[in-house]
């Protein structure tokens, strides 16, 4: 077993599944790159290099470069999934859901129900989320809450390389449409990743850290900020239990509720905007099912209800950080009626 980055873990998952199953294809803009240029194929390998080299092994019939037409990409992926392939389509930036949402929201997500249970749509949509690169309002959002709100879609948000590989393999083998969110600032994060293929089940949260004082639920990059905050707080005598749901649909409500039953305090940390969000959803879950055990109001640490700003200073203010998380946890811990 070796230390691998999230980028390597995802690449390995794709390559191993493509070797295992000839029905697995990769579809998207520049997944190989270089088509129709003097430079030749595989010039890109995905904008952040995840699919680099796949075309060499699997050829252009299975690593399919497309025009920049997201509706056609998503629809083609959905149509091929329902007719016998297991496509992994790339929606380069999740912000681009705006130009192709119908194919995901009205088509792929609803086939099975609308068609009375006859459809299987083993479709994976890999997409980048997250702010922090001054990519501004149309390339920095984290809209997993929108996807999670759609019945029929599964939504995966890995926070480390081990989970990324196991969850992507699970997603490819899953018979339902899966939105697989990759935080664009996390591709170089390393952890131990087995060389073999393995799956991480959906709907089972990872307990990143045990603690009895405050439950923190965080997603993607916020898991790492929350872990840093928890370290600081531990030195102050506040023991945080940090939960990374890993998938928001299905959501492991039991792990969150079990934890809050012990701690009586909940802080949800979410890089997305706060309205109608995962943070709101989990707050509602706990308010509804664990009101009686709460020792303090549920708190949310999120981006503000604004588009993502461009200027680095403004963007830094936009993204929740460890200090903000720690401050809110302290307030929750110190709350007195």
């Amino acid at each position: 077993m070796a230390q691998k980055t999230i980028r390597q873990a995802l690449h390995e998952a794709l390559a191993q599944e493509m070797r295992r199953d000839p029905r697995v294809v990769v579809i998207g803009e520049d997944v190989a790159g270089g088509a129709g240029t003097g430079g030749g194929r595989d010039a890109a390998g995905g904008v952040l290099g995840v699919t680099k080299g796949l075309i060499t092994e699997f050829g252009e019939d299975r690593v399919i470069d497309t025009p920049i037409t997201e509706s056609a990409i998503m629809g083609m992926a959905a149509g091929s999934a329902v007719s016998g392939l297991r496509p992994v389509a790339e929606l380069m930036f999740s912000d681009f859901l705006g130009v192709c949402f119908d194919q995901i929201y009205n088509q792929a997500a609803k086939f099975r129900y609308m068609f009375g249970g006859k459809a299987r749509t083993p479709l994976v949509i890999r997409t980048m989320i997250g702010a922090g690169r001054s990519a501004a309002a149309q390339h920095s959002q984290s809209p997993y809450g929108i996807f999670t709100s759609v019945p029929g879609l599964k939504v995966v948000i890995p926070s480390n390389a081990y989970d990324a590989k196991g969850l992507l393999i699970q997603a490819i083998r899953d018979d339902d449409p899966v939105i697989f969110c990759e935080h664009k600032l996390m591709y170089d994060l390393k952890t131990e990743v087995p060389d073999e293929a393995y799956t991480v089940p959906f709907g089972e949260a990872n307990i990143v850290r045990d603690g009895d004082d405050v439950t923190i639920v965080a997603f993607a990059r916020m898991v790492h900020y929350a872990a840093a905050a928890a370290e600081t707080l531990a030195r102050e005598g506040i023991d945080c239990e940090l939960i990374d749901p890993r998938t928001t649909s299905p959501l492991d409500a039991d792990t969150i509720l079990d934890s809050v039953a012990r701690t009586g305090r909940l802080v949800v940390v979410d890089e997305a905007t706060p309205r109608c969000s995962m943070a709101a959803d989990i707050a509602a879950l706990v308010a509804e099912h664990a009101f009686g055990v709460l020792k303090a109001p549920i708190r949310r640490v999120t981006a503000p209800h604004t588009p993502v700003p461009f200027a680095p200073g403004l963007e830094k203010l936009y993204i929740p950080d460890s200090d903000r998380i720690a401050a809110v946890v302290r307030e929750a811990q110190g709350y007195a009626r």
């Binding site: 998503m74 629809g75 083609m76 959905a78 149509g79 091929s80 329902v82 392939l85 496509p87």
Partner: peptide
């Protein structure tokens, strides 16, 4: 139409 090109891709 986008779904149809998907079925065509399968073929």
């Amino acid at each position: 139409p986008p779904l149809v090109i998907g079925a065509a891709l399968t073929a």
